[in-house]
């Protein structure tokens, strides 16, 4: 799949360019710098996440070396829960004990402004919204505004020095705030070497149309996985789509007595829409999960 190398190549290309041109002054340049920085810098801090009725504080650290990215996220409140990312593996720990370890396949920079900013700009407008100050650091505010009502928007506060993300607010299509991520303490170290995590050749993906009868404009299938362990006794086939910024996943599984009940749920920016389909012998359950507007998720589920 040569097509899949193009984003990587163009990314590297822009990376070199952005290295040469240190002073970014358009929204595009800032986003490109941000994208490179988030995965190539060593940084750490305390991050708070808030959405209606909930506030969480976690300690987040990120490093990168020859083996790829290393990240650690641990909860400061409640049970000591921890997530460790090592390359393409995510391990979950509770009170120091490993409870699950998933290998994340289909790793390509699809979500990271894949296809370059040009593709992203087909569906979003990129705007500079002035300057601000977060965690005591001067920041540049960049807004990613959806061009239609099938996706969410993002307002980002990027560190002026490193272009790392200090704060992010997720907005619905009417620009109402759904959730906020914000560092309350932050430090970073510049890395000399850039990670060159190679994108592995993956098995060719099915065509979206074969799985989804209806798909919002601009989303491309970037991952499919059989028999994902959803809970101790639930397996589902999982498919994920991305438009370069937003991601949603669809889970398909046989209908059972203890399957999720039909309905929808919203948690901050994330929606969950469950639909069960009764067919002749065996029903199916379709679960759409993602950071997309509720009506979009409902339309995806209803099209089955």
């Amino acid at each position: 799949m040569i097509r899949k190398f193009i984003p990587t190549l163009s990314l590297m290309g822009v990376l070199l360019v952005s290295q040469a041109v240190k002073a970014a002054d358009t929204a595009d340049q800032w986003l490109q710098r941000f994208n490179d920085a988030m995965h190539n810098y060593e940084y750490s801090g305390v991050l708070v996440y808030s959405r209606e009725g909930q506030l969480d504080a976690v300690e987040l650290s990120h490093d990168v070396n020859e083996q790829g990215e290393h990240a650690r996220l641990s909860y400061l409140d409640g049970l000591p829960r921890e997530f460790l990312q090592q390359g393409d593996r995510i391990t979950r720990k509770i009170s120091g004990e490993v409870v699950a370890s998933d290998r994340i396949q289909g790793r390509n920079p699809s979500g990271r402004f894949s296809g370059g900013l040009e593709r992203v700009k087909q569906h979003y407008q990129l705007q500079l919204k002035g300057q601000g100050r977060v965690v005591g650091r001067p920041a540049v505010i960049v807004e990613i505004v959806p061009r239609d009502n099938q996706r969410l928007g993002y307002r980002l506060w990027l560190d002026k020095e490193s272009a790392l993300l200090l704060k992010s607010v997720t907005l619905d299509p009417l620009a109402r705030e759904l959730e906020t991520f914000q560092f309350t303490s932050f430090s970073f170290t510049a890395k000399d070497e850039q990670s060159a995590a190679a994108t592995e050749e993956e098995a060719p993906l099915s065509r979206s149309q074969e799985i989804l009868p209806w798909l919002p404009d601009g989303f491309e299938l970037f991952m499919q996985k059989q028999a994902v362990v959803v809970s101790d006794n639930h397996l589902a086939n999982m498919y994920s789509w991305s438009d370069g910024v937003s991601t949603f996943s669809v889970f398909v599984e046989p209908l059972r007595a203890d399957s999720l009940k039909e309905g929808h749920h919203q948690y901050g920016a994330t929606v969950v829409v469950v639909r069960s389909i009764h067919e002749q012998n065996q029903g199916r359950v379709i679960t759409v999960v993602g950071e997309i507007p509720l009506h979009t998720a409902q339309k995806i589920a209803a099209a089955f």
Binding site: A71, R81, I104, R107, G111, V230, S231, S240, T247, S249
Partner: peptide, 29 residues
């Protein structure tokens, strides 16, 4: 059960998205 779906989804967003590990925090609730 819903948490199971959210967890799987968020892990992919965390490793493939623009926000690094941040999206994982969404699952905490």
């Amino acid at each position: 059960l819903i948490r199971g779906y959210l967890m799987q989804h968020s892990e992919y967003v965390a490793t493939n998205g623009t926000h690094g590990m941040m999206p994982i925090v969404r699952v905490s609730g």
